[in-house]
Amino acid sequence: MSDVTLDHIKSEHARVGALIEQYQKQSATTEYVIERAVIPLPPGARVAGPIFKEDGTLDYYLILHADEGNGSHGDAKSYADGRGLELPNRREGRLLQAAFPEECAKGSIWLEEDYEGDAAYAWYQGCLSGTQNCFRKSAELRAVAVSRFTPSII
C-alpha cells in the first residue's frame, strides 16, 4: 500500500469537487414562465409567435399584418414604412415560414436586411424551399409588413 500524501488528498478533493459541480449543473431544472399577455391586433393581423433573446427570455411577439405589397426591395420598404410597420428581419422570416406556411406558399417575401456582400442585393425568404438567399433589389417579390409587441410588466 502506498503512502497517502497531502498533495494526493488535495487532488482527489479537487476531482470530487469538480464531479459534484458537474452533477449539480446537469440535475438543475429550469422553469419558463409565460406571462399573460394581451396583444392588441388590428383587423386581419395575426400573431406569428414569440421571439426570444439569447438568454432564453422573451424579447417580443411578432405580428403579421393583413394585406401585402409587391415590387422591388425599395418598394417593399416603402410599403411597410407607409403603414408605420416594417419588413421582417431574417430571424422573423424563418418564424413566418414556420407559423404561416399557407401565406408563404403565395411566394417569396423581401426581408429588411441588405446583403452584406453586394449593395445591389437584399435578403429574401424563399417560400417554396424555406431557405433564405439574396436577390437583386430590383426584382419583384412580395412585401409583408410586421410589427413587434413587447409586453410590459406592471
Rank of each mutant, 00 (worst) to 15 (best):
H13A: 09
G82E: 07
R94W: 06
Q125E: 07
Y124Q: 03
V16A: 06
V33W: 11
E86F: 13
E92I: 07
I154Q: 05
I34G: 04
Y121W: 11
S152C: 05
K10Y: 14
V4E: 07
A139P: 04
A48G: 05
G74M: 02
S2V: 12
R142A: 04
A14K: 11
Y79F: 15
G107N: 08
I51T: 04
T131V: 09
A143P: 09
E103F: 15
K77A: 04
K53A: 08
S72T: 14
I9M: 10
G71Q: 00
T29A: 08
Q97L: 14
T5N: 01
E116G: 02
V4C: 06
K137F: 04
S152Q: 08
I51N: 01
Q26F: 13
N70T: 13
Y124C: 00
E86L: 12
G56E: 11
L85V: 05
T57E: 04
D75A: 08
L111W: 02
E31V: 15
T150S: 04
D118V: 05
E31M: 12
G49C: 11
E12L: 13
Q97C: 07
R148S: 04
G71V: 04
E116P: 04
E92L: 03
L141A: 01
Q132G: 01
E112I: 12
I39W: 10
P40T: 08
L19W: 14
S147R: 06
I34P: 03
R15Y: 15
T57I: 06
I39G: 01
S78T: 13
E113H: 13
A119H: 05
C134H: 14
F52H: 07
I20N: 10
L95Q: 03
G69Q: 09
A122I: 02
